[in-house]
Computed example of a mutant assay.
Amino acid sequence: MNLTSLSFFRNLRPDNKQFAVVGLGRFGRAVSSTLHSLGYEVLGVDVDEKRVAQVATEQQAAHCLQLDSTDPLALKESGIFEFDTVIVAIGNYLQESIITTLHIKEAGVNHVVAKASSDVHGTLLKKVGADLVVYPESEMGCTLARSLTQTGILDRFELDPDNSIVEVMVPDEFDGKTILELKLRSQYGVSILAVSHNDKFEINPNPNQRLQRGSAIVVIGSNKDISRLPIACKLAK
């Protein structure tokens, strides 16, 4: 599970079928490729001819164009202003990112998502009209830090900065006990959404089901409460 991608893509409009991605660096290519593989029509643009050629060759977008996104005329002629959602993935070039976002919003695009490289950058993007600002490097850094310090967590999906859904191995302390006996909600403030059985997950498990060592459980709760689970904060030796 690519958690950063999940956190990002769940914020995009579900009824939209067409996306434009401005900036085809590593982040922009990942966005374009994922949307394209999901069956959406994607226009990818970049000022760098090599990047445009790479995306076209690897079929990571339905259409690719080379253009200077700080030029409003070039943006208009490309048809980007007709897209319902545009992702400005320039990120590392603050001036180009802000100017591009400004032009796209002033042209009336409904939904603009912009990548920011810092808090100041993000604030400026919001000032010029970005509807959603994402911080992929920061989010990945947080995910890495948690994975290094919470080694019992197999996978994590962050609902927001404070709450998550995580997959963990059944702790030794839970082995042989029923979900009802554990009283997870009152003891830890979390709830079990699913329990693994024969490599498949049982959703909304019976509260009288006994947990077994070696199985996995999917838990939802605040990050603070999840960290209290007996397996969540064991450091790797």
Rank of each mutant, 00 (worst) to 15 (best):
E82C: 03
D84R: 15
D84F: 11
T85S: 07
I87S: 04
A89I: 11
I90C: 02
I90S: 00
N92T: 01
Y93A: 07
Q95C: 12
Q95N: 14
S97K: 03
S97N: 08
I98V: 06
T101P: 08
L102K: 07
H103Q: 08
I104C: 08
K105T: 01
E106A: 14
A107Y: 14
G108K: 13
A114L: 01
K115T: 06
A116V: 00
A116N: 06
S118H: 15
S118T: 15
D119E: 12
D119G: 03
H121V: 09
G122P: 03
L124Y: 06
V128N: 01
A130Y: 04
D131E: 08
V134K: 00
Y135G: 04
E139M: 15
G141M: 02
L144G: 05
R146K: 13
S147D: 14
S147L: 14
L148N: 04
L148P: 01
Q150Y: 12
F157K: 07
L159Q: 11
E167K: 09
E167Q: 09
V168R: 02
V168A: 04
M169A: 15
M169P: 08
M169F: 12
D172V: 00
D172I: 02
E173R: 06
F174R: 03
I179H: 00
I179Y: 00
L180I: 06
K183I: 04
L184R: 05
Q187A: 15
G189C: 12
V190W: 07
S191V: 14
S191M: 12
I192Q: 05
L193G: 01
L193H: 02
A194C: 03
S196C: 11
H197T: 08
K200G: 10
K200I: 05
K200C: 14
F201Q: 04
E202A: 09
N204W: 05
N206P: 06
P207L: 02
R210V: 07
L211N: 11
G214C: 06
A216V: 00
A216R: 15
V218I: 01
V219Q: 03
I220Y: 04
